[in-house]
Design a protein around this nucleic acid. Structure first.
Lengths: 252, 252
DNA sequence: GTGTTTATCGTCAGGCAGACGACTATGATC
DNA sequence: GATCATAGTCGTCTGCCTGACGATAAACAC
């Protein structure tokens, strides 16, 4: 096991980000337009190189801040401050995934509330929130629909994996609150689940479930009529991170 | 985004393996003794460099075969043939995790039945199955116990993450069968759960649960008295991979 | 005021898990 | 061979949780 750098081929390590949010009842991901070959002009996931003195999580947090302005909070810290959830997703290292050279990409998953207009280094025209269904169609990972050029590299696979992680993780954790602003109503949280899973949930059973799970929601005392109709109680995320028993995703 | 190799520091990419099995009612992991500095003489997880033409999964499968002789089968293929389950676990890239140079390690998790005597390149004295409790104590990740030198590098963290993955994954998937020989009894499968979780399960409720879940177990017709007592029906793993509703891990 | 919308509380039946009794079929021991 | 220990298998009962869905409450639009 020699550690002579010339003994193994040059490898670049990058972080790519699957940044998800819920806008207008749809699960959306942050996409940036590539300005140079390969895949010039195509949409891709944001990402960049890991610097020499950086941990992988630090690199992902830095990229997230550069692309969205969001600060990531560590999974250990409770979701008090207004930051995005960030976790490692998976690593992609097919020798031919980048035609230029060997690039191993450590993908991360970020969940953010719906607010900031995207900015790709200040250039908003080269970054957008796109519905994941739209980004994944044509790539074999999404449902049928209109024609859109598939994502660059293997980013469709990465995005599909990130979406699947998010879909399954909100089942058994309180992570869905990461899609919500600091204060939110039960209905807003329900619409997050509906958008991420693409299903309709019974408002009454959902309300019973989330308010009956200790530590999931903490009432703040206020109410709001953001959504019209009867004023709804405002909550913030409680300390609980694991949901037991889990929220059940309806069949099919 | 230049791709000039000199633009970023040299990084080595390795795969490390958390290979788990159940022996004598205990969850054990494969450990190899380091023959050279750093951490010379200490126990570590098996692993090695990713070669130029290899995918990450291929590198992990190759290392697994080199260390144990086990062939890995892809997650997509049903567990018919006699191979180990292999999946990517997580990637560890702290700049200082290896004192010699920057090494990014893509850890993989393998689950194997209890059979093969370890062989580290033919040298059995430098490889062993060790109870994970023993490997993790002294490192802050395990329970108290006798003194053992902690694992090299950040391998205690990696092992702890792998064990946690295995513990949670057998809840909602049929993965526990990966710890069993091709044919096994309900009692043997229960002892796998008991060893991985470190709890005692009610044999009657367990039997009802696993035999009542469609696609989990397929009776082969035979019986055995391997364990003494009344002969038990033999089963093999069915096609189902997801357990719904999941197997519930007892509190505490 | 009436209708619409959303929130919230309640009721009821079915499914599943935990606790545990009972019986069965083998090998070991006297 | 009778007895015992061991392990496997089938049932029962109770409580909790979920899905389906009725009913009421509190806002806004007209």
């Amino acid at each position: 096991m020699p550690y002579d750098p010339s003994a193994f081929p040059p490898v670049a390590v990058t972080v790519d980000l699957v940044v998800l949010t819920v806008r207008r009842h749809a699960l959306c991901a942050l996409a940036v337009r590539r300005g140079e070959p390969p895949f010039q002009g195509r949409w891709a996931l944001p990402g960049g190189f890991v610097r020499a003195d950086e941990d992988l999580a630090q690199a992902a947090a830095r990229e997230l801040a550069e692309e969205t302005g969001l600060r990531a909070h560590e999974p250990s810290v409770p979701a008090q401050d207004h930051g995005a959830h960030l976790e490692q997703l998976a690593t992609y290292g097919d020798p031919k995934r980048d035609p230029r050279m060997r690039v191993v990409s450590v993908a991360h998953l970020a969940l953010a509330p719906d607010l900031p207009a995207p900015r790709a280094g200040g250039d908003a025209s080269n970054a957008r929130w796109a519905p994941v269904d739209e980004l994944l169609q044509q790539s074999g990972y999404g449902r049928d629909g209109e024609s859109v050029a598939p994502l660059a590299f293997d980013h469709a696979q990465i995005l599909a994996d990130g979406v699947e992680r998010a879909r399954s993780k909100i089942e058994y954790s309180s992570l869905a609150t990461a899609f919500c602003p600091p204060e939110f109503t039960v209905g807003e949280l329900r619409r997050v689940y509906e958008a991420v899973w693409g299903v309709a949930l019974d408002p009454r059973n959902f309300h019973r479930k989330v308010t009956g799970t200790p530590g999931f929601l903490v009432p703040t005392g206020g109410t709001t009529t953001r959504q019209g109709g009867r004023p709804a109680q405002l909550f913030r995320a409680g300390g609980a991170t694991l949901l037991n028993p889990p929220m059940l995703r309806p069949e099919v």
